[in-house]
């Protein structure tokens, strides 16, 4: 069970969270102006990355806030968590995310 650091409540067990899919996919301001292909891209196309992945989680059984997580999909290491609207922390140097899983478990 992952230990996820909610930006509001601190580290909490995964059971308190719900997953919200890939992060940083903003709803187009004016959907009508998008052609079908662009709209389909927004609706359906996701990166499915191996390695570092920015994703949304919600502390549904806690403060109920959505927030963003950078997680390594290979090791499950959580590199950073940050509030909605905040810029993701600088991309982590290659290799660093592997080691940082040790901090991912920090209570």
């Amino acid at each position: 069970m992952l230990l996820i650091k909610c930006p509001f409540c601190g580290p909490r067990p995964e059971l308190e969270f719900s997953y919200g899919g890939q992060a940083h996919i903003a709803r187009p301001k004016d959907p009508a102006s998008l052609d079908d292909e662009a709209w389909a891209e927004y609706l359906y196309i996701r990166s499915n990355s191996k390695g570092l992945h920015a994703e949304r989680w919600r502390h549904i059984h806690g403060c109920a806030r959505f927030f963003n997580v950078q997680r390594n999909t290979v090791s499950d290491a959580i590199v950073s968590t940050y509030k909605i609207g905040e810029e993701p922390p600088k991309p982590v140097e290659p290799g660093l995310e592997e080691r940082s899983s040790r901090s991912g478990a920090a209570l």
């Binding site: 719900s18 919200g20 709803r27 919600r58 549904i60 109920a64 806030r65 959505f66 909605i84 609207g85």
Partner: peptide, 13 residues
């Protein structure tokens, strides 16, 4: 409720 909160928190805050 989750979908409503999602839009409210992440798109229309």
């Amino acid at each position: 409720l989750a979908l409503m909160e999602d839009y409210l928190q992440t798109e229309w805050s």
